[in-house]
Amino acid sequence: MHSSHIVNTMADSPAPSGGTEPAGDPEDRRRVTADIPPCHCVICDSETAAPHTLTAAENEAFADEDGPGDDDEDAVRALVPGWFGEAAAHVRRTGWTSIGIMPGTRTPGWAFSVGLWHSYRAPEVSLFGLLLPDMQQRVNRAGRLIRDNKPFGLDIEVDGILDAQPVVAKRVHPGWYPTLFGFAVGFYRGAVPPFVQLVWPDSHGLFPWQPGCGLRCRTVQPQLWLPPELHPDGPWQNPH
């Protein structure tokens, strides 16, 4: 994706308790047990972070399909403070941050979370095809549900994220990670956690996989539950 997309971050408000850390003891949240897989993000591997602006081209540079290899791991570590400092600060403060990708010439924008896996070992969430500020706010709503121990399942309708319509969380095929979630690939140093896509219905309540769903609903949202090679032809296979 060599494009003019702009990356924007949006932090959520701190937890209702008024503290500066997300709910739960940090050590408890990050402790690795047989039931809790490890986190390899930049926060877990680095205690320093300085803010820096990330361009889309730089974001893409971290999205190697195989993730960072042993030979370039030191180089990735060296860049951690500059590239991911602002996002790391948001995650430390509120549990996650919302990353927004501005619309391009062929595709609408999209938004996704970074930090839900680090803080709560929950899948990161993504949303496509709506106005960018609205998508970032809805990503934050999903994050608050997870923070407040109200997780949502896959392939069932979920209320409380959009204003008047449910969404359905669909598991994202990992083949999409480098193209659409390059910032997360870098933030998690190649060990990307699961992602889900929050899919919204058309004005008649029909989802893209249901017969009769409106054309706009089916085209502004990619079908990320499919492998990229099986996705219908269109701009999402090479968004710019």
Rank of each mutant, 00 (worst) to 15 (best):
R106P: 06
V192G: 01
V185A: 15
R218E: 13
G205K: 02
T55N: 11
F152G: 01
F187E: 10
P235G: 07
L224R: 00
T20R: 13
Q223R: 08
M102Y: 01
D35Y: 09
M102C: 14
I146T: 12
F183C: 09
I43R: 10
D74H: 05
L198I: 00
R138I: 01
I43F: 01
E73S: 11
C213H: 00
A87S: 03
D233S: 08
M1T: 13
A15Q: 14
T105C: 14
W83C: 12
S203Y: 12
P16E: 06
G143A: 09
T219P: 05
G109R: 01
L116T: 04
R30G: 01
V7Q: 07
R92M: 13
F187S: 01
L180M: 07
T179W: 10
G109V: 00
V192Q: 09
P178V: 02
V91F: 07
L145H: 03
E73A: 13
G129D: 03
I6R: 13
L79K: 12
L127V: 12
L224H: 08
P178I: 03
G109T: 02
G153D: 15
Q221L: 07
T219A: 09
L198A: 08
P108R: 05
F112S: 01
G175V: 03
H240A: 11
D134P: 08
N8T: 14
L130Q: 06
E21I: 02
A164S: 15
G67P: 00
P81A: 05
P222G: 06
G67T: 07
A75I: 08
M135E: 02
C217M: 09
R171A: 13
V80I: 13
V158W: 12
V80E: 12
R77A: 11
Y177C: 11
D155Y: 09
P81L: 10
L131C: 12
Q210E: 14
D66T: 14
A111C: 05
P81D: 01
G85T: 09
L180Y: 02
L145Q: 12
L162I: 02
A61D: 12
I6C: 10
S203L: 10
C217Q: 08
G24R: 02
H240C: 11
S17P: 02
F112G: 02
G214T: 13
C213D: 03
I6K: 14
P14Q: 08
R93P: 04
V158T: 15
E229A: 14
A61Y: 06
